[in-house]
Simulated scan of single mutants.
Amino acid sequence: MPNTLNPLELIARRWQPSAAFVRRAALATVVMAVIIVVTGGAVRLTQSGLGCSTWPKCTPESLTPTAAMGINGLIEFGNRMLTYVLCAFIGLFIVAARARAPHRRSLTRLGWGQFWIVMGNAVWGGIVVLTGLNPYLVAAHFLLTTALLTVCVLTWQRAKEGDEEPRDLTARPVRQLAWLLVAATAALTVIGTAVTGAGPHAGDAHKVHRIPLDWQEITQLHVDFVYIVVGLSVATWFTLRAVKAPAAPRRRVLELLGCLALQGVFGYVQYFLGLPELVVGLHMFGSTLVWICVLRVLLALRDRGPVPQAADEAAEPEAAEPQQAAVASAPSR
């Protein structure tokens, strides 16, 4: 009985994407994950969280919103449809990573990891609707999307590097400082969901249960963690300079500091203006940029060699500088 090829193997026999294409496909999943966060925030800020009254249908009688539901139904349903667009981009990456020779199982596994997080979060979003926007479930819904963004960023990084054993570019205390920065930023994100859950933007025009916390106090705790993250970022940059680390990690920290400055502006503006919807949305967008930058700082502290090339393919220059080159070109001080 002849061996039966699965569809991905059949595609791999007929299509050989370039390493650059795989990188761009991975980056597209990062962009789509950010869009999902921002549009999810738009659903909440436009009071469209229950624009569709049930799940998986929009109403008990209709899969799509009706004219009587108005703009809120369209916004909520549109956000649901974006999940399919996200899955299409993830599928494109999985197919490209599988078709690329040599096959890198680590990339396809990360792609499938993205897919299953999306599927799980879609079901979780349905539970959020069926429970009338329970604030704890809404917070978990956002954190699951952040987990998706994390895997997407890791996938993007892995698409730009090889499969060698990770080689540390800095001493262990420096890496521990970077991990502390990641942990503090993660805590900042979790506290941010508590601020949102206790705040005035409940996600629907009707009375919705809120997290029973003093909004002013939890906001102050959020601000305190902002200062901790900023302090750790500055400390990381000076430490990298002191140990003469490669240029790439130092550049990643500067990018992070720039995002933190922008996010700080959004945060203070929304606080002093009474949480206008547009500025709150920009603040959510800024939170995704900060998380991406923090992850990139951590990932820049190790090297896994160049991207594997096909046997009949000339080595192509990578879009991101290989860490080995960064080590060689690091200025001495």
Rank of each mutant, 00 (worst) to 15 (best):
M1F: 06
T4P: 10
L5R: 15
L8E: 11
W15R: 12
P17N: 10
F21E: 06
R23N: 08
A26P: 04
V30W: 00
V38W: 03
T39E: 09
T39S: 10
R44K: 13
T46E: 06
T64S: 05
P65R: 00
G73E: 00
L82V: 02
Y84I: 11
C87H: 04
G91Q: 08
R98L: 08
A101K: 14
A101F: 05
P102H: 12
T108I: 09
L110S: 07
W112G: 08
W112F: 09
W116S: 10
L133S: 02
H141F: 07
F142N: 03
L143D: 06
T145E: 03
A147C: 12
L149G: 00
C152I: 02
L154M: 11
T155D: 13
T155M: 14
W156Q: 01
R158Y: 03
G162S: 15
D163C: 07
R167Q: 12
R167V: 08
R175G: 05
L180A: 15
V190A: 10
A198W: 03
A202N: 08
D204F: 00
H206S: 11
H206G: 10
H209L: 12
I211W: 08
Q216K: 14
I218N: 13
T219E: 14
H222E: 11
F225G: 03
V226Q: 05
V229P: 00
V234C: 09
A242E: 13
A248R: 02
R251M: 09
L257I: 09
L257F: 06
L260Y: 00
G264D: 10
V265A: 12
F266M: 09
F272Q: 14
L282H: 01
L282A: 05
L289W: 00
L298E: 14
E316R: 08
A320F: 00
A320D: 06
P322N: 15
S329Y: 05
P331E: 15
